[in-house]
Design a protein around this nucleic acid. Sequence first.
DNA 1: GCCAACGTTGGC
DNA 2: GCCAACGTTGGC
Length: 155
Amino acid sequence: MAYWLMKSEPDVYSIDDLKRDNTELWDGVRNYQARNFLTSMAVGDLAFFYHSNTKPPGIVGLMDVVETQVVDPTQFDSASPYYDPKSSPEQPRWHTVTVGYKETFAPGITLDQMKAAFTPEDLWVVRRGNRLSVMPVADAVAARLLAMARGQDKP
DNA sequence: GCCAACGTTGGC
DNA sequence: GCCAACGTTGGC
């Protein structure tokens, strides 16, 4: 079982939206490195939900991978911002996963806290200029993140 | 196949 | 709103 970190802008899709929907197709990833991480996910993997482009940015919850190798339907939709004219249903370029809601961290783990606790080598999201929206998280790092979240859970 | 221009991401 | 980082595109 592997751990991941997946970014979303809360104005577009937030942890509260996922809690409401219970499961969600993670569509719109159009970066090959991120896609390759998506296609290497397995059912049962856990992923930290990261809110980007918000104040403060950070990890806000946990989800699990419930379905893998899903063809992202937005690549065929010419009305979608994620439309890819070079893709076809016969040869789709973009596969993704369906995620399920697990829990919300209240409060979350802010980017500042992560910068204080981890090196850029340990946790890619603290790398300067990092733009990757899906990335792996090592088991030991995931365990520390979960401990940080659990510790903050208590009033 | 190089690389400048351009567009996007995302923290601040 | 600014701008650094960096991936992609397209001319050559």
